[in-house]
């Protein structure tokens, strides 16, 4: 039986730096997997590989038994995998609602001919899409900020918005790069509850996170990446209790 997502033998060099070194792991469907590891361990790089932003020197990614090698990012989103960015990458001059609208799967009126020659049809369908996008904003508790330009949103609101935009893609496997960092306790609880809810709705999540408390609370399974290689995996308790990992990563209690 093949795993839901399977990464195997991925190597990636940047100049003299081996960013990913025979990196391999598998993820089961329906859970929340947290990926932890020191800064520069290659977490974001493996995200880039899985989502088609980076073609690795060697190695493979398979999703539901299908090889994704060489596919472009949009094909990978269509296959059901979407990702968020550590540095958010929101469209700051657009409104919150417009950001989510961009996340929705392509629809009518997104190519010029449809937009120009069937304006009423376009407008009608766009209204429906706006309603859909609004639901996504409600999902993350940002409905009242829909018409605000993103540059005027607080950092916490922007973080929530990246999740809303990600959700809009409809992808079933969501890769989140530090969705909780920089959030106040209230917003943090909100994000964690949201991630749990998404799991309940049938999504599978792979989350990069440095906050040990968050990992403990949400992870079903933890992958520990070190120097581009999967160094350990297990339950949160197993990983946190491992003295070798505490030495290179966790340190004392914070």
């Amino acid at each position: 039986m093949s795993a839901y997502l399977e990464v195997s033998g991925v190597n990636q060099r940047f100049g003299g730096l081996q960013a990913l070194n025979d990196c391999g792991f598998a993820i089961a469907q329906g859970g929340i997997t947290c990926m932890v590891g020191p800064n520069g361990a290659g977490k974001t790089t493996i995200f880039n590989v899985i989502t088609g932003f980076l073609r690795p020197d060697t190695g493979h990614v398979a999703f539901r038994g299908r090889r994704l090698d060489g596919l472009r990012p949009q094909a990978i989103v269509a296959a059901g995998i979407a990702r968020s960015f550590q540095n958010l990458r929101l469209f700051v001059d657009l409104t919150a609602l417009e950001n989510v609208l961009i996340g929705l799967p392509s629809g009518f009126g997104e190519a010029p001919l449809g937009a120009l020659f069937r304006p009423f049809h376009t407008a009608r369908l766009d209204r429906a899409r706006r309603a859909q996008a609004m639901e996504r904003l409600e999902h993350v508790g940002l409905a009242d900020r829909a018409a605000e330009k993103v540059r005027n949103l607080s950092y916490g609101e922007q973080k929530l918005l990246t999740v809303a935009r990600l959700l809009a893609t409809g992808a079933e496997l969501l890769l989140l790069d530090e969705p909780a960092s920089g959030l106040a306790a209230g917003a943090l609880d909100q994000v964690m509850a949201l991630l749990r809810r998404l799991q309940g709705e049938g999504k599978t999540l792979l989350v990069v996170e440095h906050n040990t408390r968050v990992v403990q609370q949400i992870a079903d399974h933890v992958l520990f990446l070190h120097q581009g290689h999967l160094m350990a995996e297990g339950t949160p308790a197993q990983i946190i209790a491992d003295p070798a990992l505490a030495e290179i990563y966790f340190g004392g209690a914070l």
């Binding site: 590891g37 020191p38 800064n39 530090e178 440095h210 990563y249 966790f250 340190g251 004392g252």
Partner: peptide, 8 residues
Amino acid sequence: GLQPNLVE
């Protein structure tokens, strides 16, 4: 974005 022991 910092690993826990570096925050310390």
